[in-house]
Design a protein around this nucleic acid. Sequence first.
DNA 1: ACCTGAACACCGTTCAAGT
DNA 2: ACCTGAACACCGTTCAAGT
Lengths: 206, 206
Amino acid sequence: MKIHREQIIEAGMLLLDRDGLEGVTLRRVAAELHVHAGALYWHVRNKQDLLDEMANALLAEQFAQVEGPAPEQDWEHWLQGICLRLRQAMLAHREGARVVAGASFGRAILLKQLTETIIRSLLDAGFSLHLAYLICTTVLSYVYGFVIEEQAAPTPEIISKHASDGSILADIFREKGNIYTTEADFLTGLEMILDGAKRKVMNQLS
Amino acid sequence: MKIHREQIIEAGMLLLDRDGLEGVTLRRVAAELHVHAGALYWHVRNKQDLLDEMANALLAEQFAQVEGPAPEQDWEHWLQGICLRLRQAMLAHREGARVVAGASFGRAILLKQLTETIIRSLLDAGFSLHLAYLICTTVLSYVYGFVIEEQAAPTPEIISKHASDGSILADIFREKGNIYTTEADFLTGLEMILDGAKRKVMNQLS
DNA sequence: ACCTGAACACCGTTCAAGT
DNA sequence: ACCTGAACACCGTTCAAGT
């Protein structure tokens, strides 16, 4: 029963898509590979290590290699494209946003590379390191938050509980299928942030 | 050994501050109250129920009652104040942001009320329901994301691991104590979002 | 080098039975 | 009404011992 790191990650992704994040368990991963749970510890430091690696695998589907803006492309449109792809990568797997948001740079190399590339591109656009970092995390926080919401299917129980209490959220929940799941909405919020960021620099430079 | 719901929540908060979120365990909460774990289920539906209630208690410290903008106050400054208080509430307890971000409206009544008030105030300011909801969640996502980062103390191990690999993040991590923990930085990012939102409406109205 | 077997120290949740 | 006692079905992690 020879096992490789790769297979452990694959098995983890399989369980993620099938049973959700709480279904990703070292014991189940081991069972999937016909191996005892303890055996995994030869290939993986601990559970978080595996989750980080899964986040990496998830990102690899969209960010096999990350590149800065093209020569005549401005940073806003480039960053917008990056965010769209990031959302796409997360949406491709159940609770993908939670997995990525919970990952640390340690093993999720692509997450680190992505962050690096964003900050570097903003520096090249004339931002201070401080502001570049702030914009980067602001945007990433937004993407995480949005997609986490998007993937957290509100249970029918929750919907019906709030459906008839006269609250505004009731109205929103009722048409939830339409709201907040579209790329258009994602873009609207993103544009707000990028637009605000652009003006912040302009004020800073003048 | 009579137990009240209130005491369970209090014990939960105590464990949260002392041992962190992963230290909040129904068995430990029960031990704190000199009661068997099963006894809690008379007062609480399950663990998430308790966590939701804890999120509520946390919010109550800042939002005992939530009010919309004052008569001559514009929505941006009002919303800015709300976000500052929300951050304050979360910072007051260890991993407070994670607790609130993970809570559902079910039991965390104040979270629902807060959301309601924000959306309603934006409606009063002339936004469409759709846009009001989008701005609300965008802003909340930002606050969650920022404070979660802020409270996730990067372990010395992580810092040293990335401190000397020539990456930009290395530079940032090294001065991490200064960066990203200040209210000023929080406000900068928040202003970007609010500013972008304001312009989005102006375009919409014209 | 890499896995088994078995243990350790926990979890959340349920439920008969007690008072 | 509210708690005990005890179980059920799990966890992550460690580590001697095997091969």
